[in-house]
């Protein structure tokens, strides 16, 4: 099990990338799995840092990653405002350039690159549990 506490500043995404590189090396993940794991967590944590907090205080986002056989189990906890990514409207991928919306792609990518996503709100925290099969 690997744990990372991330302060809600966008430059900390570099720490995330480094953490995932180390985790990937330690567990002998393929470059593709490392890239996708980084992408999933980058999208989720960027969203949290950008939208979850309505004050200027420091907040800590807690990340846990567990490798079990050929699967990664990931838990992400933040104390921001309630946000269930599963309830977010799906982006329309078949629209022309002119109609194509600018936002919403991050969550779409997360859904595409994970095998299971569960969300719960508990003691004023968002708890996201993800599973990703290693291929």
């Amino acid at each position: 099990m690997a744990k990372l506490s991330i302060e809600n500043k966008i430059e900390n995404l570099n720490k995330l990338a480094e953490f995932i590189e180390n985790f990937g090396e330690e567990h002998e993940l393929s470059p593709k799995n490392i890239f996708e794991l980084n992408l999933i967590l980058d999208e989720l944590i960027t969203n949290i840092i950008s939208y979850a907090y309505e004050d200027d205080s420091d907040h800590i986002i807690e990340l846990d990653i567990n490798k079990e056989k050929d699967e990664l189990k990931i838990q992400l906890i933040d104390d921001g405002k309630e946000f269930n990514p599963l309830e977010k409207e799906e982006v329309k991928l078949d629209e022309d350039l002119d109609e194509r919306k600018i936002g919403g792609l991050g969550i779409h990518i997360v859904k595409e690159k994970t095998d299971e996503i569960k969300y719960k709100r508990e003691s004023n925290k968002n708890i996201l549990m993800l599973k990703k099969k290693l291929k």
Binding site: F35, N38, T46, L97, I102, L105, I109
Partner: peptide, 19 residues
């Protein structure tokens, strides 16, 4: 080496401008 939706967003903004 790496792109996230933040990078895609910029490409979309530029493509819309060009279109």
């Amino acid at each position: 080496k790496y792109i996230s939706s933040s990078g895609l967003r910029v490409l979309l903004v530029a493509a819309k401008k060009l279109s």
